[in-house]
Design a protein around this nucleic acid. Structure first.
Lengths: 347, 347
DNA sequence: CTGTTAGCGCGTTCAA
DNA sequence: TTGAACGCGCTAACAG
């Protein structure tokens, strides 16, 4: 591999001239410039980004740590992060924590060792507080993605989960639904907790009886990470909801299986809606009313915040909440079915 | 940031001892060893991977260039690559070429500049042959992923597309289908061409009339990358197939929209099958018979080949084809409907 | 407008 | 069993 010295010799100039030609960092005369360019061509020289990074003590790279690279929503975020990073000439180093706080810690360390300029962290579910505190002290700034921790001093990007769940539930309530089953998942995950909170607020605002609502969560150290099919089936028979809301795609899959096992049909027997949801849901039956995550934009925004932070390290931290969109589909088109049931329930 | 010198001073040893303690590269006495370890702890020293890479002239990192980070199938591959890379202590640098051969070229250059030890390349559709030839000459080896070019000298990982399409079509033929519409896409993409070839072979083997088969491709420099809905609708009315096969997820989406627009139902009016397909397809109607890509395993395998190559640079190149699985679902359960139609057609 | 030179942090001879 | 010193390839003073 040719080095700058080879180029310099060939072009009969000094290495510093070569450097300046490459980086456009100071003026050099047309003639010499051309000689250098030719020499680069002739020698097949390529800049060594590593050596450059070491000298400048910045690597023009950022690290992305995800809690689950396999999840479709996170895949979209990767896409967004990659896209914004590329636009700014930053290379992206990817690591997966697999929802494991040890692996997360190791991944972060590895990235820091690589001298990334900054970090985007879609933190693991039960994130190690110690890790986050260490990160506060790092020179390389960190942006938290997807899972927002209001009490922490980071730049953060999330979605307006609470508001969207509030809107979703409120709309269903106004359609006459009064008994919900919410498959809420692990409430230690901020995203899921926010959705949960949005629901309880909607229930309160709608004047619904709390005891008619069944919230299936798994916050008390249950062995399984998500409610399983049996749990949902039991809930379905116990509370006989008129509407089911699932707080994430995996939870929705579990819920749908449970519904099928109980022989319940959507929307004839009950309404159904899900966060994140399924791709191409408009092509299939039942067409599921879905909260679309602005995942791509969230990724882009995270990189934007990171770059701002790199430019001015000491401005105060920002939390950005991106708006979600509800795609209303036929799975919640139940006015004619539910309203009578609802009335009957009141009678 | 503490350096080895700081640690050495603190431990009252030389830097070389520190280095050897860290890397376990020669014996050092228990006592001194402990002093060093303590000093590392005390100073908060972290190895600088960049400097290390420069000195050793290997970076313990690999580059992954994908033609479309957004596609779900590729997302799975990322997952596989990441997982295998992590197991081998390799960090993963990700780049997206967005199916653009210029961007692909730049991405590859950027990764090579970063002195990645190797490259995994899921090449862009109309990949620049020049680029691939350059890559042949590089010191850092490249593994081609997903899109297999038999005539090129690379380690390669793909799926057995031709065989699977052959099996899929043959099975449908044995069910009585004799008129197919294949939404085949851009045949310059090796994957899609292999699927196409498998189909024509099945047609020949099954003794079907070629003129009854409609293959919708876009290989002749059409403005649109995929057949659009109108094209599929026209094909549906012209050829009146009893079975439709889509060669990829986006093509399947287009086909399904066209079917809906024509008021055709699955499986009552015709059978339908797709490659790659849709997630959670068993939860929705119609349940689509789908060829599952072993995408995760493909990613892992690619890294495996890369590591083998790094260890023995001059063994001959290998091409690995991973087996796909056909998930038969109700979208092709049409025996009772098609058989009579088929007979009628013969009468 | 161009050249000389001192490190960046590390691994690794070579010598002790 | 340990240390001293060189250089990986590059950028950024500083000098001219």
């Amino acid at each position: 591999m040719a080095t700058m010295i080879d180029v310099a010799r060939q072009a009969r100039v000094s290495v510093s001239t070569v450097s300046h030609v490459i980086n456009g960092t100071r003026h050099v005369e047309q003639a010499t410039r051309k000689r250098v360019l030719d020499a680069i061509e002739a020698t097949g020289y390529r800049q060594d980004t590593l050596a450059r990074a070491m000298r400048r003590s910045r690597s023009d790279s950022i690290g992305l740590v995800l809690s689950d690279v396999g999840e479709p929503a996170f895949a979209e975020m990767i896409h967004g992060v990659e896209s914004a990073a590329a636009e700014h000439g930053l290379t992206l180093i990817l690591a997966n924590s697999a929802e494991d706080s040890d692996r997360e810690k190791r991944a972060v360390q590895a990235l820091l060792n690589r001298r990334v300029d900054g970090l985007v962290l879609a933190s693991a579910a039960i994130s190690d507080r110690g890790l986050l505190e260490e990160l506060q002290g790092e020179k390389a700034p960190t942006v938290l993605l997807d899972r927002v921790y209001p009490e922490l001093d980071f730049d953060q990007v999330g979605a307006n989960n609470r508001e969207t769940m509030y809107a979703l539930a409120s709309q269903l309530i106004s359609q006459g639904h009064a008994r919900f089953l919410v498959v809420a998942g692990d409430l230690r995950v901020p995203t899921l907790r926010e959705r949960h909170d949005g629901f309880t607020e909607a229930v309160a605002a709608g004047g619904l009886r709390t005891e008619d609502q069944h919230i299936l969560s798994s916050d008390e150290g249950s062995p399984r990470p998500v409610p399983d099919i049996e749990a949902v089936r039991k809930a379905l028979t116990l509370s006989r909801p008129t509407a089911v809301i699932a707080s994430s795609t995996p939870l929705a899959a579990v819920a749908l299986r449970a519904l099928a096992a109980e022989g319940l049909r959507i929307p004839e027997d009950l309404a159904f809606a899900a966060f994140d949801g399924f791709d191409n849901s408009d092509l299939f039956e039942p067409q599921i009313t879905t909260v679309r995550q602005p995942a791509f934009e969230m990724g882009r925004t995270a990189v934007g915040l990171l770059i701002d932070r790199l430019e001015k390290p000491s401005t105060s931290h920002r939390t950005v909440r991106l708006k979600q969109r509800i795609d209303w589909r036929s799975s919640t088109r139940t006015e004619n079915v539910v309203a009578p049931e609802h009335d009957a329930g009141l009678a």
